[in-house]
Design a protein around this nucleic acid. Structure first.
Lengths: 140, 140
DNA sequence: CCTTTATGTAACAGCTCTCGTTCCGATTTG
DNA sequence: CAAATCGGAACGAGAGCTGTTACATAAAGG
């Protein structure tokens, strides 16, 4: 599969907007991400639906953050662009006549939910302001 | 994408072997997982390479656990069957002429590594014996 | 040695997802 | 009305996963 890079692009786009004063067009953003403006607009559309950015059309149109970078976490961005990942279970339901097959999925769901929650807890501790701070430190 | 369900099958297979006294064939296992024996053998092959199961060919052949269920964690199973998931970054490298594009990936890798470590820490706390215990509790 | 049974694995088709692209309508400004 | 920009549909290319067939390899028993 072509690996899902929506989250990476979303963080990239949000970081760009956080570091820019003005509203920016999808074409300008695409220049930094090195992709097609439509790909950027798809990400921006998801972020807008989550209330993280605001976009306007027409001349002088473009996008800006809807909230301050301190109030946007990486978990917000992750949930905005990635489908709620149901824990990856069997494609075909297991054999219900087998004691293991009948109950394995509920056991799996419980563990995977805990693991996913731990991952999301880490993403929730990092804000967009942390990211731009790290970027400024790396730039020098 | 056809969602990756190797981890779910791996836990299922390992739980079956943990609850059976005897060596079991891939065909028998496939009956509980409800899939093709070759799919099961692919999982078993990965588990064998990780030193978690032992398989023998020929008449009376089949697979058994290589270690006691208390000494196999879900993290062991996860690492055995899932490619080392490099954090999902951009497909095309970002524009190096942009300060954000030049540094965003290293910042992303740092955060994603922490998030992945948190997830793996949860998987490491659950053993195959815990899984079979939950299965027995659900069955009985 | 030969038959039987089982694993190991390559090869292939079908499916789904993602991305990049083209295209067109809608909206805003002047 | 013209220009610029977003919104989003539609399509093809490419990649990964699963299920299947096919065949070589290996072990056990007569």
């Amino acid at each position: 599969m072509a690996r899902n890079c929506r989250f990476a692009v979303a963080v990239h786009v949000a970081a760009l907007l956080a570091m820019e004063e003005q509203s920016r067009t999808s074409e300008w953003i695409a220049g930094s991400v090195n992709t097609n403006p439509v790909v950027v607009r798809r990400i921006l559309s998801a972020l807008a639906k989550a209330g993280l950015v605001i976009s306007t059309r027409g001349i002088n149109g473009g996008s800006t953050l809807a909230k301050s970078p301190e109030r946007i976490t990486l978990l917000d961005l992750h949930r905005a662009v990635d489908e709620e990942e149901t824990p990856a279970l069997h494609n075909q339901p297991p054999n219900p006549a087998c004691p293991v097959g009948r109950n394995i999925q509920s056991v799996l769901v419980r563990v995977m939910d805990r693991a996913e929650a731990a991952k999301e807890a880490v993403l929730a501790t990092t804000t967009l302001a942390d990211v731009t701070g790290a970027l400024r430190a790396a730039t020098g």
